[in-house]
């Protein structure tokens, strides 16, 4: 692929994942030389092409208008890469999926009748075919660069399927769960952050969503035996990847 055209699209989100592109300070000008950003509103480009070679999609679908817009993105795109927990899992705004969105609207707005919103926040892959997913709240900068590099080289994008536990072992962090009984979602969480939280003496809280073949009931039992409060553990599962760690109703 020679200098592919690229679009960055935003749906319901905080902007943090597309900011990660601009946070590649050492690589940004090289990335901009290798990729032809034509649509990237936060950075400036706003050219609507009939076809983009690569679309990076941030955010979840929460309105009818966005549900149509994402189909249009698919039609215009060669490769669609979703970036971050909102796009891959619906984000924290998917807590509405387990609540009464009309009550939410009334709670915040004096005139709820002016608000256009869906009762659910859903991942992009619920609406269109997605070619690659980058997990995380936010995504990891190195994973983003590795994915872009792989797409440019025409090779398979790097895929990890293991859990955060492997990353703790790689960086030599003693297991907080085993040694101190700390509530840690590392055993069921997708790798990618580099096991940041355990390295600062904090249990993983699942930013990257579930790893493949995660045994959630098994972990919940271990945490219970270690004396952790079930309400707290369930609450931490019901955050940025609530739809993927699907544990039922919100606490």
């Amino acid at each position: 692929m020679t200098r592919p055209t690229v679009a960055v699209w935003k749906f319901a989100s905080c902007d943090g994942c597309q900011l990660t592109i601009l946070d590649c300070e050492d690589e940004l000008l090289a990335i901009a030389a290798a990729l032809d950003f034509r649509m990237f509103l936060e950075a400036g480009p706003e050219e609507m092409l009939d076809h983009f070679d690569i679309s990076l999609v941030e955010g979840s679908i929460t309105t009818n208008h966005d549900a149509e817009r994402i189909r249009e993105v698919r039609e215009r795109s060669g490769i669609v890469v979703t970036i971050g927990a909102c796009a891959t899992a619906g984000g924290i705004q998917a807590l509405r999926n387990y609540a009464d969105v009309e009550e939410y609207t009334r709670h915040i707005y004096a005139r709820p009748d002016w608000i256009d919103t869906l009762a659910t926040s859903t991942p992009i892959a619920h609406h269109i075919k997605v070619d690659h997913e980058l997990h995380g709240c936010p995504i990891n900068k190195e994973q983003l660069i590795a994915t872009i590099t792989a797409l440019l080289a025409g090779r398979r994008t790097p895929v990890t399927s293991h859990s955060v536990c492997v990353e703790c072992k790689q960086r030599g962090t003693p297991c907080l769960l085993v040694s101190e009984g700390t509530a840690c979602l590392g055993p069921v969480t997708h790798a990618g952050c580099g096991a940041l939280c355990p390295s600062i003496n904090r249990g993983c809280f699942g930013c990257f969503g579930p790893s493949e073949s995660a045994n959630l009931p098994g972990l919940l039992e271990v945490l219970r035996v270690a004396g952790n409060d079930e309400h707290e553990v369930l609450a931490s599962l019901r955050t940025f990847n609530v739809t993927k760690f699907d544990t039922g109703a919100t606490p």
Binding site: D66, G91, I92, Q93, L95, R96, Y104, T105, I108, T117
Partner: peptide, 18 residues
Amino acid sequence: FEPPRFFEAFLRGRAYSE
């Protein structure tokens, strides 16, 4: 055209630590 995400609504019932 930023859709609402309802933070103030879903914060209710969460722990003070969150």
